[in-house]
């Protein structure tokens, strides 16, 4: 389903926002330019309720079972998972690097916290990404306003709580501007 106007079904539990799943995969020979990124990323479905989320999610491959250089993105409907999107342009992301084997569990926990509005930062959250790489996997959560320190601290603290991260986990905040340079 790529419907723009997904609605909760009768008796279902609505989400605060609709969310769209995206998938991207890069072949190592291709350059990582923004154009090829846009060409390689595709929408795979939008959900509007808790029940729609589970129906969709249950059919997806677990990220930890993906091979190569692949990403799942879950973003609020209407926000492209690219820094160029207006909602992301002044934003940034918290990055958590994970050793192999942890991605599926942490990805599920981060997206449940996002769908359930556990971050308590108003409109600030844009989406979350799990990136499968060769040596390690990377989780990130994107927000709109990178220079709003109250918000970024609150997101970090919520992440620590909901993910119950190993104590030696390093969390790093990057503005999308920095990523661009």
């Amino acid at each position: 389903n790529n419907n723009i106007n997904m609605c909760p079904g009768v008796g279902e539990h609505p989400l605060q926002y609709n969310y769209t799943f995206w998938y991207s995969r890069r072949t190592p020979s291709r350059p990582a330019s923004s154009q090829s990124y846009e060409q390689n990323i595709r929408q795979i479905g939008t959900v509007a309720s808790v029940e729609q989320f589970w129906r969709f999610y249950s059919h997806l491959v677990r990220p930890g079972d993906l091979s190569g250089h692949s990403d799942f993105h879950l973003f609020k409907e209407g926000i492209k998972p690219m820094w160029e999107d207006e909602s992301n342009r002044s934003g940034g992301k918290w990055i958590i690097r994970l050793r192999k084997g942890l991605a599926s569990r942490f990805w599920e926990n981060i997206i449940l916290a996002m769908l359930g509005e556990q971050f308590m930062v108003g409109e600030e959250i844009c989406g979350a990404v799990v990136s499968i790489r060769f040596q390690e996997d990377i989780l990130s959560i994107w927000n709109r306003t990178s220079n709003d320190q109250m918000t970024t601290s609150r997101i970090r603290d919520t992440l620590r709580r909901v993910l119950n991260l190993p104590t030696n986990t390093i969390m790093e905040y990057k503005t999308h501007n920095d990523s661009l340079r």
Binding site: H13, Q16, E51, W54, S58, N109, L112, L115, G116, E117
Partner: peptide, 21 residues
């Protein structure tokens, strides 16, 4: 306005009982 908040436990319960409560 009011926000729709769900904790992890509730979301997981919805997974195991797909029929609306």
């Amino acid at each position: 306005g009011t926000r729709i908040i769900y904790d992890r436990k509730f979301l997981l319960e919805c997974r195991s009982s797909p029929v609306a409560k």
